[in-house]
Simulated assay, not measured.
Amino acid sequence: MRAPVPEPVPDPGSDRAPDPVRGAPTAAAHLRAVRTLLAGAGVPSPDADARVLLAHVLDRPTLPYPLPESLTASQVAELAAVTDRRVRREPLQHIVGHAPFRHLTLRVAPGVFVPRPETESVAQVAVDDALARGAAGRDALVVDLCCGAGGIALAVATEVPGSRVVAVDLSADAVDLTRSNAAAVGAGHVQVLGGDVRDPGLLAELVGEVDVVVSNPPYIPPDRVPLEPEVRDHDPDLALYGGGADGLDVPRAVVERAAALLRPGGLFVMEHAEVQADAVRALVAATGAFTDVATRADLAGRDRMVTARRLAA
């Protein structure tokens, strides 16, 4: 049964006072009611999500200030519908159709992994290295393996002038979505390809030529099913589970492709789970192809990525 947006009890003189013209609760009252419903459903960020949902209903990129005095009947109905979807733990990004990633707004869709804020730190490492190469007089060639909706690849393409970026994903839906996002953000020059990182011939034409290989691959072990309904029930298994008992089969393949693609001195950066830091460092070092193998933290201080430099062949 749909969870309706409740009618708050107005407090005289408060922001929940009824609209004196229409006799209906104000937009602020609806915002408070949505926040209460989301909190009751266990949504982790009810205040932020309520504001995004109301902005979406108002067809605004962010919530305006001051809020409108009232909502139209159609806006009230739409707010009830999107609130019901969020109460049922459908991802906020699927409901509004987009997700922020660094300075970009990317279209998202069911069947493709939703970009996460923690991956912005991985993108930053790739961007910084590509910029340094540009400053040294050579435009960077960057490959994003397992690109999903294209966040990392498009961040590099739009933040690093002159860079050449290639994005690859096994999912046809992800390839289509990345191409669409590339066109929308003015990065139509990004080459987006379908391909499997486990294919030893993937990007054979770029072997030994790439400056930066960056990846946010699937890495969840089969016995570590995510607790969050938004992830467990909505992100595709292809983008979540890395294969093997440790979840690192796909990351191992990414490491092997990076070793083949990178030029000497090229940078490798890959996201992983916090508990996998030691294992991922070990598998990178075991190739014998890298030096300066290190774990780096994300913005929350969690060990979430490995970096390394390609040795001379």
Score class of each variant (00 low, 15 high):
residue 161 P to D: 01
residue 186 G to C: 15
residue 186 G to N: 11
residue 207 V to D: 15
residue 199 D to T: 02
residue 207 V to A: 14
residue 170 L to I: 04
residue 157 A to D: 03
residue 145 L to H: 02
residue 181 N to T: 03
residue 212 V to Q: 07
residue 173 D to I: 06
residue 169 D to V: 01
residue 200 P to T: 10
residue 208 G to Y: 00
residue 165 V to K: 05
residue 190 V to I: 04
residue 168 V to P: 13
residue 158 T to C: 12
residue 199 D to R: 06
residue 191 Q to C: 15
residue 143 V to M: 00
residue 176 D to K: 11
residue 202 L to N: 02
residue 193 L to A: 10
residue 163 S to C: 02
residue 154 L to Q: 05
residue 161 P to N: 03
residue 213 V to G: 05
residue 156 V to I: 09
residue 172 A to V: 13
residue 182 A to S: 09
residue 213 V to D: 11
residue 175 V to S: 12
residue 194 G to Y: 01
residue 147 C to F: 00
residue 173 D to H: 14
residue 206 L to F: 02
residue 153 A to V: 04
residue 143 V to K: 01
residue 201 G to M: 03
residue 146 C to Y: 00
residue 200 P to W: 12
residue 163 S to F: 04
residue 184 A to M: 03
residue 153 A to R: 11
residue 189 H to Y: 15
residue 149 A to C: 12
residue 192 V to Q: 08
residue 174 A to Q: 07
residue 168 V to T: 14
residue 157 A to K: 13
residue 144 D to E: 15
residue 209 E to H: 08
residue 172 A to F: 15
residue 158 T to F: 05
residue 183 A to T: 13
residue 196 D to N: 07
residue 192 V to M: 11
residue 201 G to R: 09
residue 171 S to I: 05
residue 174 A to D: 12
residue 142 V to N: 00
residue 184 A to T: 01
residue 152 I to W: 12
residue 203 L to K: 07
residue 182 A to E: 04
residue 149 A to F: 07
residue 170 L to H: 03
residue 188 G to R: 08
residue 169 D to F: 01
residue 152 I to Y: 13
residue 186 G to R: 13
residue 163 S to G: 01
residue 167 A to G: 13
residue 180 S to Y: 12
residue 192 V to W: 09
residue 175 V to N: 10
residue 211 D to S: 01
residue 208 G to K: 01
residue 166 V to R: 11
residue 155 A to Y: 06
residue 210 V to Y: 02
residue 207 V to G: 14
residue 151 G to K: 10
residue 142 V to E: 00
residue 143 V to R: 00
residue 207 V to I: 02
residue 184 A to E: 06
residue 205 E to D: 14
residue 144 D to Y: 10
residue 169 D to Y: 02
residue 209 E to D: 12
residue 163 S to Q: 04
residue 198 R to P: 07
residue 152 I to V: 15
residue 181 N to R: 06
residue 161 P to S: 01
residue 211 D to R: 01
residue 147 C to R: 08
residue 177 L to I: 12
residue 212 V to F: 08
